[in-house]
Design a protein around this nucleic acid. Structure first.
Lengths: 189, 189, 189, 189
DNA sequence: AATGAATGAGGTTTCATTCAT
DNA sequence: TATGAATGAAACCTCATTCAT
């Protein structure tokens, strides 16, 4: 009997392990050899679990999106909308290291998708929808575009955090206030 | 009489010509041969005008940032702040094709910078400052962070425009309203 | 009670099963994984029965040569030489699918042998001798070179059957007539 | 101005230089690095002149077929058919080293073609036709199948010359006699 | 100034073979 | 016996860059 008991689970582990690598260097600047090394396996093993570098990356993006959604759903919904927005901001700031990396990967994935043909965008659209739903649910939104936009703005902030990570807090807080102001004026009451 | 009168100007022309290429494919997916072909010159000539691919790209990013600033400064300042915000939104929507491409290049450049060492971030910081000033001036802002944020959010929206370009208008309009709500609540009296 | 009673016999079965695979794709274009899959076993099992891919192939070539000889010996020897030649041609045409595949494997094996050192040519020479004897016996030949040549010519025709399998019949018939003409002129009486 | 004056001619030179390599080792056993080394160029240069290994090989096969035809046309046609056949045999024996290698490449090419899809067989059919015409012309043949067959038989003999190169002469001579016997019986008069 | 042939390090991927279970 | 995950050398190919002309 072979060593690995649950291949699917092991794949997830491998994906998690190369999260930092892709986030910090970007898809094009990471070699498959580096990935294998980071994972502590041979390149052969890498290709045993993932058809190719592209597929590996797509599965990582998918995994990341699921984690993001899980993070968002941590916000306590027993509060009014402005409080929830603040709580979301708080959560992002607490997890800023992760959030910034996640954004780096997501942007990379976007570029990747725009290069490829439409057929592959199915996985992209599916992921996109996930974010939309998570935000809609959190803020009781009826407008899907608004939900999409909010996460888009968060990503926008995240990727702009080159080294000045202390500004992340400030920018998220500013965004929080913008959202609250917008909600108070257009949505609540 | 030599063909090229003004080398500096010719360089600018070359840069302009490869804007689309980088925007659509991304730095890593464009080869120097493709660039040369797009420009209608040989690779040798390319290297005559630019030390290497990286420098070429950095100069393109710089050129783009100057064009962006020029675009922003087109907004008529003889209106109140909310009107200026609306006008800016309008401008972005009118130039959406350019704005989206510009964002693609900017994000690519960000990734590029975060990979490299600090020494090269000088050019990055310089560019960043330019945006900050343009927005600050346009909206009479005292807080540089807020100015930075606004352009950051615009970029955030822009890069998320994979194919669904019709949503760009909606999203920019939503952002416009957020900004107005925020200004009304926190800045204008 | 162990599953496999007779390892030697099982090996023969395995060899027979991968005949088509090697014939259609060629030694270099068949992976051990494909072989294992075709055989319905794991690669581990494959290596349990055969030291390596090369040995597997050599044994296949040997098995094929034995089958060829068995086929040749089916020709009824109660006829004169020209009739036997015609009967041999008939037999080849009837089994053309097999004959063509067998030739593909044989040629592959020849290439294989010419690459390796002389030590391994023992198995090659042994196989070669087998063909020589079978043909010599069938046509009452004294000249071993002539016997060799005949099978060589048949192989030559066989490998040239890319897709145009209908020409196989024609070409074998032409060869048959050549042989008869040659025998009538130089050998019989 | 670049170094190479006539790229097409240089390509031919490169092809000629790797003839031995492919003939002796076979397509699958020759690496692109070995080819480059044999040619005295870098792998990059190799790929500058040939899209990939496959294309290089196909062009080699094509070149070889042209040389073969040129060789065949050397036979003096001012003699009767049997004499021409003998002269052809003589020519083959004189050039046996080349003939054997050429056959090795041709067989490799056949295998290669049978693996690929029909679209690529155009080049194969074209080459095949060339042989047919050269032989038809030499022996005043009306039957294209017979012409094809003759070259096929020569190839059959050639590839069977593993090391025993002295038998090549014998076998070609035997084939010569077969052909003469066949012509005398079926074609002439 | 302009060309594009030449370079070769290094990228992605394959695959025969091993070995723990 | 049987399995198939794991290995890593080595294959094919790309591409930023150089340099002779």
């Amino acid at each position: 009997m072979p060593k690995i008991v649950d291949a699917a689970q092991y794949r997830q582990e491998l994906l998690s392990k190369c999260f930092d690598l892709f986030a910090e260097r970007g898809y094009a600047n990471v070699t498959t050899r580096q990935i294998a090394q980071e994972l502590g396996v041979s390149t052969g093993t890498l290709y045993h679990y993932f058809a190719n570098k592209q597929v590996l990356f797509e599965q990582l993006a998918e995994q990341v999106s699921l984690q993001d959604v899980a993070m968002i759903s941590q916000v306590d919904k027993n509060q009014d909308i402005p409080q929830r927005i603040i709580a979301l901001g708080q959560l992002l700031i607490e997890n800023q290291e992760y959030v910034i990396k996640q954004a780096a990967i997501w942007i990379d994935f976007l570029q990747h998708c725009s290069t490829k043909k439409v057929s592959e965008n199915l996985v992209f659209e599916q992921i996109d929808l996930r974010y939309e739903q998570a935000i809609s649910e959190l803020l009781d939104l009826k407008d899907p575009q608004l939900a999409s936009l909010i996460w888009t703005l968060i990503d926008g902030i995240s990727i702009n955090q080159l080294d000045s990570k202390d500004s992340f807090t400030t920018q998220i807080n500013l965004l929080t206030q913008m959202l609250i102001a917008y909600f108070e004026k257009h949505i609540l009451i």
